[in-house]
Design a protein around this nucleic acid. Structure first.
Length: 293
DNA sequence: GTGTTTGTTATCAA
DNA sequence: CTTGATAACAAACA
């Protein structure tokens, strides 16, 4: 379940080496994953390079050289972007070769979950794997990209515009549970099920409280909690719960720091009571009824 | 066979 | 028009 910290970790790593590498070929193993025609997709990419890799919320976009176009990649729930080289290219890290990918779902690359992959001039490869096929790749021009961003994404959690004032305004007269509101990408871009539950725990707010019932002081604490959780998760290269791996095929370390997500039935780290679980917005929702009011 | 996992959108209702 | 709730998408696992 890649959310902002996982997607951002991938972006930072890929940007260290992908720019300036010419794509010499690409394979589309799952046609529905690519939202353009295969011919158009190949024509736009083969022979080109990615100039810059950016992110908004959970959406990645790769700027394509000498054109007005961008490659959008959304990982949705089980998407992975795995970069494979024969040498160590990422400073301080070890990179994969295709056979050392056994530890991940599906075995050596490309495997049964590989939907698309790119081959670069130097023989290195980028694999898009996606067990559940919700993720997609799509080429759009600059205008379309701006439209998508403007219409679908609220402020980034770490941006100054994500502040108490903004959330007070956003929550007023809203009769949905605060968890549902925080999952809305138009309100805040990049939070998903894990980080919403963790942020609400840190803020001491029960996930089913209605937006309009949360007071300014609590919202103050919530803003700080969201920024703290996202920063800590970034520092730990995200959370691996089921499927997530970074671009080097490695797990995220925030998994060890979870307070509530996936911990139902276990002791709360703060008060030792049992973590509970309910369903909100159709999602598993984890909380401590003693620490969160 | 049943329930569960979740990011996002489509659809419907009030 | 706004708001909110829910199904659907897809695949695997317990």
């Amino acid at each position: 379940m890649p959310e902002l910290p996982e997607v951002e970790t991938i972006r930072i790593d890929l940007e260290k080496f992908l720019p300036a590498k010419k794509i010499i070929s690409l394979e589309i193993l799952s046609p529905k994953t690519v939202k353009n025609s295969a011919a158009f997709f190949k024509k736009k990419l083969i022979g080109h390079k990615f100039v810059k890799i950016s992110r908004r919320g959970k959406l990645l976009f790769f700027q394509i050289d000498n054109s007005n176009d961008f490659l959008l990649i959304h990982l949705k729930m089980t998407g992975q972007l795995i970069y494979v080289s024969k040498k160590n290219l990422i400073s301080g890290g070890h990179s994969l070769n295709e056979d050392s990918f056994e530890s991940s779902v599906g075995g050596p690359l490309p495997n049964k979950y590989t939907r698309v992959y790119f081959i670069f001039q130097d023989g290195e490869k980028l694999f898009f794997n996606d067990l559940r096929k919700f993720g997609y790749l799509k080429i759009v021009d600059k205008k379309e990209l701006e439209k998508i961003i403007n219409e679908n994404y609220g402020p980034e959690p770490l941006d100054l515009s994500l502040n108490t004032e903004y959330l007070v305004k956003s929550f007023s007269n809203r009769k949905r549970p605060i968890k549902n509101l925080l999952l809305d990408q138009k309100l805040i871009a990049g939070l998903g099920n894990i980080y919403v539950d963790e942020s609400l725990f840190l803020a001491g707010i029960k996930p089913d409280r209605l937006g309009e019932k949360v007071n300014r002081k609590e919202i103050d604490k919530l803003v700080l909690s969201i920024k703290k959780i996202i920063n800590l998760a970034l520092k730990n290269r995200g959370t691996t719960f089921n499927n997530y791996l970074d671009s080097q095929g490695k797990r995220g370390n925030f998994s060890n720091l979870l307070n509530v997500y996936g911990r139902q039935g276990q002791q709360c780290h703060q008060c030792k009571q049992k973590i509970e679980k309910m369903k909100l917005a159709g999602r598993g929702t984890h909380y401590c009824s003693f620490c969160q009011k």
